[in-house]
Each structure stands twice: as C-alpha cells, then as structure tokens.
C-alpha cells in the first residue's frame, strides 16, 4: 500500500509540473512588455523599468522565471500583484470561504447524489426511476450561473427565504443555497452514476452466489452491491472537482461570496495576469493533489488496484 501511494505521488509530479508550467506559460508568453503595458505613460526611465523587471524576475529566461515562481509558490509565496498586494494574503483571507463552500457542496453531492442514486438503483425500472433519469439530465444541462441567478431572484429577492447575497458571512444559513446550486450538476451526475453502478453490480455473478450462500437481502445489498458500486462513484467525485472549481468562480461571483473564485473574477476584471495565474495554479495543484487522495481511496476500496498493475 505504501509502495502504491509513493508510486502514485511520483506519477503525479510530472503532471503537476506540466500543468502549472502550461498555465504559467499561457499568461507570461504574452507579446509585449507587461511592465510597460501596465505603467503606460507614467513609466519610469529604462533603469527604473529594469529594477521592476528584476523584482518580478522578468529579466531572466522564461524557464527560469517559471522555476523561481514554482520555488516561491512551494514556499507559500504566491508573489505580489502589480499594485503591491501580496497574492498569498489574498489567498489566505479568501481560501477558507471557498473551502467552506466546496465542502458543503461535496456534502450535498454525497448525501443527495449517492442517496437518490441508491434508491433509484434499487427500484430500477419503476416510474420513479425513469423520472429521476430525465430530471437529472435536465439538472445537468442547466448552466450553474443561470440556476444561480434564478434562485437568487426567486428565493432571495422575491420570496426572501434566503439571503440573496452572502457577503462576508460564511455560516451555513448563508452558504447552503449557493453550495446546493454549485453542486446541482454534480449531484445529478453522481445520482446517475450511482444508479447505473448499482444496477450493473446487481447482475454480477458474485451477487447471485452471495444469495445462494444464504445471506439475507439486506446483507447482500450492503456488502456486495453497495460496497462494489461505490468504487466508480469515488473516482468520479475526484475528477468532478475540476468542474466544481470552475463552478465555484461563477457561484461566488453571483452570490458575492468573499472566496478565491470571486478574487479570480475580480483579477480578471482588473486584468491582473499574475493573480489570475497564481489562483489558477493553486486550483490546479489542489485538483492534482485531491486526485492523488482519491486514487488512494480507490485503492482502499478496490484491492485489485493495490497490488498488481
């Protein structure tokens, strides 16, 4: 098992560097001089510009810039915005809110998605089953921001059931609706996946053998159908985190949650390349790391992965 975890981490390293390099490259390969573009007419003389370039490592070759950037990043220094604010500061203050939102959303995914999926998976072929199949498709195709606006309008402004915007508050009362909206598509996908997985597993040979052993239905269902069905669901939740992070940017913006996604939106609006890259890089790192965790979890659930291959 330890060997597997080490191997998995080693495999993730090139992916991590490749992905961050790609994102970094995308923004810093821009034509033109970012410093000159930024200061416009108020630029200091060439010597002054050089000092600023040196401060941002812009005088060094690109690959070195990237490595220095990664070094700082791994030490917790995400650089500073051109206006002088530390990106680490921004991240430190806004990250907890986003994590809060994300955790509530994932909790919804697991409780609602897996829960409903299990129910329809057992009652396959029923009217309930087929209506859930259609409803989930509808939920998957409604864009997060459309759902966000509509809910904000209906529940927040017209009905006044929930606060229309979250602001700096992060208690559950304020957060549950944005989190639910953020999770909607994933809930629906997980629900379908769970259903299909449970159905496939109920036809497995070993399930029939378990019945033949004399196990009562609930034991077969719990030990042999559910347990095996959760394997693809766990993998999916990991892979889906990427979509969740993209969605968080939209949800936080709509509900004015002071999270990292909102900061990303603000940075885009202000045209601050460094901040945008830093935040996206952070997201990529989180994504890769969580997927390592998910892979380990996968190996815990499925012994065939642990050994062999």
């Amino acid at each position: 098992m330890v060997k597997y975890i080490l191997k998995r981490c080693l495999q993730a390293l090139p992916v991590l560097f490749g992905a961050t390099f790609l994102v970094y490259g995308l923004v810093f390969l821009q034509p033109g001089d970012p410093i000159r573009a930024l200061c416009g007419q108020h630029c200091p003389n060439e010597a002054g510009l050089d000092i600023i370039r040196a401060r941002y490592n812009l005088d060094k070759p690109f690959i070195l810039q990237y490595l220095l950037y990664m070094k700082n990043l791994l030490l917790g220094d995400f650089g500073t915005t051109f206006s002088g604010r530390s990106v680490s500061d921004i991240i430190a203050t806004s990250m907890p809110n986003t994590i809060h939102l994300g955790l509530i959303a994932i909790a919804f995914e697991i409780i609602l998605g897996v829960g409903i999926g299990i129910i329809v998976g057992i009652r396959r072929g029923s009217f309930f089953d087929s209506s859930i199949l259609v409803i989930t498709l509808i939920l998957i195709s409604i864009p997060t921001f459309v759902l966000g606006f509509v809910c904000q309008l209906v529940f927040g402004m017209n009905l006044g059931i929930v606060p229309p915007t979250v602001g700096s508050s992060t208690d559950f009362e304020h957060m549950y609706m944005p989190a639910l909206i953020l999770a909607t598509g994933s809930i629906a996908s997980i629900c379908r996946l769970t259903r299909n997985s449970i159905q496939d597993n109920s036809y497995a040979d070993h399930v029939r053998t378990s019945y033949a052993k004399g196990l009562p239905r609930y034991q077969v269902t719990l030990r042999h159908i559910f347990r095996n069905s959760m394997i693809p669901v766990v993998t999916y939740i990991g892979a889906d985190l990427g979509a969740l992070m993209g969605g968080a940017v939209l949800t936080e913006t709509i509900f004015n949650i002071q999270g990292i996604g909102n900061q990303l939106y603000a940075a885009i609006q202000r045209g601050e390349g460094t901040t945008v890259v830093s935040i996206i890089t952070l997201f990529v790192i989180i994504f890769v790391v969580t997927n390592i965790v998910v892979d380990i979890l996968y190996a815990v659930l499925d012994p065939r992965i642990r050994y062999g291959k």
Binding site: P14, V15, L16, G18, A19, L22, V23, L26, V27, L29, Q30, G242, A243, M245, G246, G247, V249, L264, I268, G273, V276, V277, I280, F283, V284, F287, V288, N291
Partner: peptide, 19 residues
C-alpha cells in the same frame, strides 16, 4: 493527456483567454 486533464476546462480557458 494527464497534464491537460489536470487543468479544469473553465479555469484553463480563463488563463488562455487572458493571452
């Protein structure tokens, strides 16, 4: 493929569209 897969669609698009 792994490298590209590690960059979520919307986020990667935001980064590239900056450029």
């Amino acid at each position: 493929t792994d490298v590209f897969f590690a960059i979520p669609l919307i986020l990667g698009a935001v980064a590239l569209l900056q450029l």
